[in-house]
Design a protein around this nucleic acid. Structure first.
Lengths: 238, 238
DNA sequence: AATCATTTGTGATTTACGTCACGGGAACCT
DNA sequence: AGGTTCCCGTGACGTAAATCACAAATGATT
């Protein structure tokens, strides 16, 4: 799927604030151009879905803007959210390299701009760019890492409060901290939090209320302030 | 870590029954030799541990014989088993490529023979062998895939019986089937099964007894026979 | 055989949390 | 303003399953 946006994409790429984190932007110049030639860009509204679990992998999406929810669901409608992807991340990578089906569903939760690379083009590109392949391997390693840590919060907790505490701490890990307090822009509904930690909407709201009563967190509008990381860590450790 | 076993390893490799599944054996001849040169082989007794979660990654282990338990534990001793690795698998790959710490602990549960490749040697090898890097990426993709499916059994179930049923079916997926029945050599203790599905030892034995009563499974010594996959699937789907 | 260690089986008890049900807010559209 | 549609807060209730505590069984080791 050749595209006229090639050059524009390169420029986007070079200008991208996430450049360091991005998978391919700091490859040698010719590689970046080769990549741009097989990339097509598109915008997606909130609620759109990039791919659905079980679909044969068509290719990868590189998220430029917006946020994407990665989840898996059971037959009876229960769903488990694995991750909220941020700009700079590559979606659908594992399925695309292995040739299996997408193992997750990717839903847009904030209007997004993403670059798409079809599977064949992508694999050919990797075959001809050994360093990109290595980069991909590293990215996959990190994705795995994150999955394992999600696994830990769900699988190693004795109680829902432990899960929630674990979740908040992990979520806060990306945010700037000042003197023990972390301000989190909480963009998830209680329902979604529940789906991330494998519990129910009601217990999440109850637990959050509980945490508030115990001065562990504070809610101001849609931002959550962790008043005491230490106490949350105490909950995690039994 | 140059080793005198180089040639021997190539021969093992070519003779290996898992050759197709193995990561590197069907690479071009020169690559295989280069790989052999940086590989060292060792035997490990039952109970030994290849690496521990949290350790900085030293390198990868290619399992030739025996079986290895991959797990993660919380501070208070609760442990979650992610996977039992079989010969042919590569252990420690995600951590080694990303340069982070091992995310899991690898314990030998059946006396094992494994080839070790130190991180630096391995990365250099990958840099010079683009196709190997791609292979690694694919392997990582599959590892991820397995992690997600483990995640599903733990996170999407409403009850412990659902988890156990899911577990048995996944476990059986590798075994030969004849007319609806699958014979599984059950090498795990109830405790270990519990740690795989995130529940307690007692409920596992109770549930298995229950399944036996309901004619879903049958136990003969240490082999488990799934009498009715269909009924197990019914349990999984609500 | 005899002792020990590990694994399995089962009962009794407790409690965390899922589920149902409903009311109040906030946000968004017309 | 009024109607919809989400999201959040809380009460009541029942149950699944963790936990505790032994006993039986299996299997190692001597």
């Amino acid at each position: 799927m050749r595209t006229p946006y090639g050059l524009e994409i390169i420029e986007n790429c070079l200008a991208c604030p996430h450049r360091e984190e991005r998978l391919f932007c700091n490859l040698p110049e010719p590689s970046v151009r080769a990549l741009a030639a097989i990339t097509s860009s598109a915008a997606y509204p909130k609620g759109a879905t990039l791919f659905v679990e079980g679909q044969p992998a068509r290719g990868v999406f590189i998220l430029c803007n917006g946020r994407v929810k990665l989840s898996t669901s059971s037959a009876d409608g229960k769903t488990l959210i694995l991750r909220i992807s941020e700009p700079g991340e590559v979606l659908g990578l594992p399925a695309t390299v292995t040739g299996k089906s997408y193992e997750l569903t990717a839903d847009i939760i904030e209007p997004a701009q993403a670059n798409f690379i079809a599977r064949n083009d992508f694999l050919n590109f990797l075959r001809e760019n050994g360093d990109a392949a290595l980069r991909v391997a590293q990215q996959l390693g990190e994705t795995y890492h994150l999955a394992i840590s999600e696994m830990r919060t769900i699988g190693l907790s004795h109680s829902a409060s432990e899960k929630l505490a674990r979740f908040l701490l992990e979520w806060a890990a990306n945010c700037p901290e000042e003197k023990g307090q972390v301000r989190i822009k909480m963009t998830l509904t209680h329902e979604e939090i529940a789906q991330m930690i494998g519990s129910s909407r009601e217990t999440v709201t109850r637990l959050l209320a509980d945490f508030r009563r115990k001065q562990l967190v504070q809610v101001v509008g849609s931002t959550l302030i962790l008043r005491s990381k230490a106490d949350l860590e105490a909950i995690v450790n039994g």
